[in-house]
Each structure stands twice: as C-alpha cells, then as structure tokens.
Write a protein that binds this DNA or RNA. Structure first.
Length: 425
RNA sequence: GGAGAGGUGCCUGAGCGGUUGAAAGGGGCGGUCUCGAAAACCGUUGAGCUGGGUUUCCGGCUCCCAGGGUUCGAAUCCCUGCCUCUCCGCCA
C-alpha cells in the first residue's frame, strides 16, 4: 500500500508508474475520495467537539440538580447528525481503501523500464553451462530410471502436480533443505523460524497476495484459512501491528516451509515434470530493515541466495526484472535462474525482492527511531534461498553421467549418509 | 467437542455511565545527590487521523481485543465475533 500523502503530492507520477508496472489505477477517483474524506472529517469533528463540550455541561447541570432537558434535546439532534456523517465517512473510507489496496508498489529508480519479461536485464552469470559428451537426459527420465520421483502415484493419491519423491530422491530433498537452513543460520546469521503452513486472510493481505491472487491459493473454507504459497507470508507477518526498536534491526529470518500453489490459469505451461507443481519445498529468507539500508540489504540478500547456487556448483544467471515484469508488491527484484541441461533452459529458483514500505504499511510494522522520534515503517525484503523442486531438477540434470547415475555434490554429503552417487536400482 | 474465566498503556493491575488517555506499582528515560555506582528523591514516559503556524509550535477528533447496539454522554450497560487461560473428553 502506498502512502496517501505520496499519491496526493505526485498523482501524475503515480499514474505513470502504475501503467509502467502494467497495473494501471484510477488515480483521479482516489484523489477525489481523499478530498471528500477530509471534508467529511472536518465537519464531523466540529460536531463531535460540540457534543463533548455540551455533554460536560449536562453533567454539571445534573450535578447541580438543574434542568438539562433543552440541551439534551439539542444534542440528540447533533448526535443523529454525527451518526449520519460517521456512516458517510466510513463508506468513503471503505471505497478509498478498496482502491488504495489495488495500487501496485512503484518501481525503484534502479529498476529498468520495459514492456515485458523480454526486457529483463541479465545482470550476472556464474560459471558456464556444463558440457556433456552424451545427450543429457531430462529430470523426468532420470527420475524414473533412478526410481526417485513418482508422478503417477502422486497423481493417484492427490492429483496432477503432486509428485512423490522416493528413496534417494526423498533423502536428497531433505539434504537440500538441511543444507539451506544450516547455511543461512550458521553462515549468514539468519534466525530460524518454523511457521504455520496455514494462515488467515489478514496475513495474506499484509504481504500482498490478497486481494489480487486469491484464486492462486488453496483455501480451507470451513476454517477460513489458506495454505501458504510461501513462508514469506507467515514469517513477514510475525511482526504485524508491532513497533520494533531500531536496535533490533535488521531482523533476518529464514524458514523452511512447504508451499502450496493452485497455479490456476497456467495450465499448459510446464505441465510436465517437476517444474510447476502444486506443492514444493522452499527455504525463505525474510528481512526487516531500516529504510535507508534496504537497497544494500537487497544486494546482501541476493549474495546469500547466490551462495547456495555456487556451493552446489550450478551454472546460473541473475536477472534484474524490468518494471513491467515486477510483482505487485515489489519495488525491485532479482531473479536467480539455474541452468537445467536436460531441459535446455534456465529455471527460476529464487526471487529476491525489496518491497520498501509497501508491505510494512499493509501490516503496520514500524520501528521506533533511536532518537525517540515517531515510529516509522520498516522496509521488508525476501528471497528464496532456495526452492527445492527446481533446484532438484537442475541438480539431477547437471550431475548426471553417461551411464545414467547422478553424482551428489560434496556440500550435501553430510546429510546423505555417505552416499556420493545415485544409481539405478 | 462439553463446562467455566478473562481480554485496559512497555509489564503487573485499578476503574459508581459524565474533566479517565485512563489510579497505583514496576520498567524505561531525564535530573538532583555522588569521585563513580547503588539507594533515595523529583520529573517524564502511547498511537492514529485531521487542522493552523509551517525546523524544535499550538489545537481538534478517535483509540481501554474487533464489529454492531442502548444513551445527551460508554473503558464502564447489551449483542456478535476473535483470541487467551482453566477443567473434562478426544488425540499425534
């Protein structure tokens, strides 16, 4: 959510920026509602002031056993008028709110301008794609040969898009999660959180998934709860409606969670295999920081996520998303894409975003400046570090051998009970 | 699932329907004292919105879990929801 003051001061700029982000908004209506709101407030506050002073007078008259019926009758009318105006104000504010929550975050000045995802900028690449003296298999084939991914049985027990990991595949998945968590907690100084996997509406509103993306989430109607699409939601909401001390910042959390996505509307894209599934595992990094440091923190966050890819020895590239491809709540975002030789394409395995105060406003997360000033909104950031589903794909396809086995990267050995190579059963 | 209790400021904890934004204590901050510290004493200590002067300034309105209702007036009365706690049942 943007600051109303900011919209009031730069309506044309906001209008242009929202168009650049491909989610235009009706700024004129918002400005108009804002004016009506403030006019109403002026009038209703004048009347309430009158009511308050007169009520005092009534109390005094009563105490002195004098007649107050005239003032009371007068105030009854004023009260009716107030009730009427209160209703109007509430209505205006609700309408204004409905508009405001749909205004996207404004892209940061360092975010490139573009028309579509084609205009994302390749900012960095790491190593070269591995070369093979044989035709590399894709992960689906490898999964079947090695008996580590079972698509048909997943479909049987849950549905399409719910593959089952088995044997060394299951163990590898667990090793990856452990490696991620250990790295970020011990090496990078994040505090570990194990969050609920179901959250309420308020939490999803706070991080920006609601109201825009409700159809993308699994909803348990009976309890009014949603399956989290990412640990970002519960973890960022930890400090909702709180005022933190400046000394506590920056707060750095990492959390493993399963992630649930309906992927409605994306049927036909990446339908095969393990690339787009309804449930996957992810270790998420979340930061709450001083506004003045958030862009430095974004670079550090990206470095922390990249460290994992480097340690796994995967070829990858970094994209800086252009404004048109930026998500609703983000001001700047880097996508990390790992190379999958079998697919012959890059797979998005992490998005590192700075939301500035956009989420903090929705969640009302503030900090008290060290000098004791009024509370200010924190800046929030998050990034995957990393998502296992696609990393597993990149891993299997990168480390496969001519005879169909897959080497286990050395950094995962501590969690593989001595297994260094996965072979056919 | 059944039966109770309760949700007040950073914390504990008062609060006959009418100067209660809120007693008291604790904590925090500032000061006095001290070479310094402790103790003691004094002072101070919420947020949002909206005006005006427009750097440290001065007003008004709102907020005692949330949303409704009663009333001239509600933290205080009534209803609904949410949350917490205790007991019973069930259970990983």
């Amino acid at each position: 959510m943007l600051d109303m003051q900011r919209i009031r001061d730069n309506p044309e700029f906001i209008k242009k920026a929202s168009e650049n982000k491909k989610s235009p908004v009706d700024i004129d209506t918002i400005i108009n509602l804002d004016n009506r709101r403030r006019d109403t407030i002026k009038e209703v506050e004048r009347l309430k002031n009158l009511r308050n002073t007169r009520s005092q007078e009534i109390a005094v008259l009563r105490k002195e056993k004098k007649d107050a019926t005239k003032v009371i009758a007068e105030m009854k009318e004023v009260s009716d008028r107030i009730k009427d105006l209160d209703g109007q104000q509430k209505e205006i504010e609700e309408t204004l709110h409905e508009h405001l929550i749909r205004v996207p975050n404004i892209a940061h000045e360092s975010t490139p301008h573009g028309e579509s995802e084609k205009d994302n900028v390749v900012t960095a690449t790491w190593e070269k794609p591995p070369s093979f003296d044989f035709k590399p298999k894709d992960h689906i084939e490898l999964g079947i040969i090695l008996d580590i991914i079972d698509f048909p049985r997943g479909a049987k027990i849950a549905g399409a898009g719910f593959p089952v990991l088995k044997n060394e595949g299951a163990r590898l998945e667990r090793a990856l999660i452990n490696f991620f968590l250990e790295t970020h907690t011990r090496r990078h100084g994040y505090r570990e959180i194990f969050p609920p996997f179901l959250v309420n509406r308020a939490s999803l509103f706070g991080t920006g998934q609601l109201p825009k993306s409700e159809e993308q989430m699994y909803f348990i109607g009976e309890d009014g709860l949603f399956c989290i699409p990412t640990a970002e939601v519960p973890v960022t909401n930890l400090h909702r409606d709180e005022i933190l001390d400046q000394a506590q910042l920056p707060i750095k959390y990492c959390a493993y969670s399963a992630c649930f996505r309906r992927e409605a509307g994306s049927y036909g894209r990446d339908t095969k295999g393990y690339l787009r599934v309804h449930q996957f595992n992810k270790v998420e990094l979340v930061k709450m920081v001083l506004p003045s440091t958030s862009y430095d923190e974004l670079e550090l966050l990206r470095i922390d996520a990249e460290f994992i890819l480097k340690a796994l020895g995967l070829h990858y590239r970094v994209l800086t998303l252009c404004d048109a491809d930026l998500s609703f709540a983000a001001a700047k975002c880097y996508d990390l894409e790992a190379w999958a030789p079998g697919e012959g394409s890059y797979l998005e395995v992490s998005s590192c975003s700075n939301f500035e105060d956009f989420q903090a406003r929705r969640m009302n997360i503030r900090y008290r400046p060290a000098n004791g000033d009024k509370p200010r909104f924190v800046h929030t950031l998050n990034g995957s570090g990393l998502a296992t589903a696609r990393i597993l794909v990149a891993l299997l396809e990168t480390y496969q051998t001519a005879n169909g086995t897959v080497h286990v990267p050395e950094v995962l050995h501590p969690w593989m009970q001595g297994l260094t190579e996965i072979g056919p059963r």
